[in-house]
Design a protein around this nucleic acid. Sequence first.
DNA 1: AAGCAATCTTGACACTGTCCATATTGAGCA
DNA 2: TGCTCAATATGGACAGTGTCAAGATTGCTT
Lengths: 215, 215
Amino acid sequence: MTNRQSSLVEPCESGDKPYHHGDLRRQILDEAARLLKEEGEAGLSMRKLAQNLGVSRTAPYHHFKDKQALLCGVAEEGFRRLREVVRTPPYVEGAEISEAAVRLFVHRYVQFSIDNAEYYELMFGARLWKSEQLTESLRLEAHNAFKVYIEQIRLWQQSISTSTVDALRFAQVSWSTLHGMSRLLIDGIYLDATAINVMSDTAAKMFWQQLYIQA
Amino acid sequence: MTNRQSSLVEPCESGDKPYHHGDLRRQILDEAARLLKEEGEAGLSMRKLAQNLGVSRTAPYHHFKDKQALLCGVAEEGFRRLREVVRTPPYVEGAEISEAAVRLFVHRYVQFSIDNAEYYELMFGARLWKSEQLTESLRLEAHNAFKVYIEQIRLWQQSISTSTVDALRFAQVSWSTLHGMSRLLIDGIYLDATAINVMSDTAAKMFWQQLYIQA
DNA sequence: AAGCAATCTTGACACTGTCCATATTGAGCA
DNA sequence: TGCTCAATATGGACAGTGTCAAGATTGCTT
């Protein structure tokens, strides 16, 4: 029942149970991601989540309409992170894209999916996308991420004056390759972690050659 | 309470509740796949499954140790089907592989994943592969499927005398592409069904050119 | 100070996977 | 034929789940 002022000081001091908690939504998102990472999808329940945060079972429902909505929130954050990875290539405007740059790009994407597997699975899982209950903000964030990806490919393609590849189609297929590799790895089908680099390099070389191919 | 003889007649006559049912395991697998297809993963529960088949909730547990084991059984069947698709290319032994053959192969794979989405999701989902409870028979069936795939690629590569591609690496990456396209489609991220053919063709052309590339 | 909206809590309900003891059955052996 | 035994099916029970409805608490605004 101890009560403390909170508007001025940082509300996140830990200790006794506070009044209104103040920072829940944020902590829910983080704890959800943590649970997903540690125990997998089966280990994430609304009740356990609430208990771990020291609030009642239904408290989270004032910040997320649904479990679904919560997962959408987590995925949304994943897309924001991914966008930064995709958008920050070592690509100098005007200069011709190099094979090394493509290789680095591939490595970054795959590495992101591994480092953020909890997020990645949600971001591109049927759980959310086949549910007809996608948060509008998530749909926006996802659409945006793909737009950034296409824009990136278009820059590559335009930097090579002789390239005849259709940028959109190439974007779709190359993304499929990246996505496929990532899923096979994080879903536990490709266990050989040392194969990651070899596969990434092979994929990068394929992309690179594809960009130069003439019709 | 009506009771009937059963040893001589076909036990699967429908009508009143029979003695020992006799054909359960098979029907469980089918009904599970049906439920997955109609209502998605969330719509499949052991209890509903049993109820739909007219048996008690725990009856399925005499044929599958677990829900997990049941899903493994379904996935296993999926792998058997996939193997047939992969193994039956229009490829004439000895003749050089044609671009059209590659294209057809890609189409077949993607089409399989769409037509058997319920199976595909299980076959390559984290649900099973990250669970440490994979049925041994499933692990075998899966391993076999990938072996058949590699063998196929190797045939292609050997049919082109000038090809310098590393067959194993190319198999890994091309499979990633196929898997990525399939997942993006069946998970509902690529909604545009008309894009399937275009993407498949683009991927096929990429594979084809890759097979011919010189180091 | 009063009121209101946001936030949190408790209780309840239907549903889930799965263990247990029990009942039914079919097949193999005397 | 009759008896036994393992395979199969059943209902009860338990802990766990998502989520709704009603009530309590709190902080902000007027």
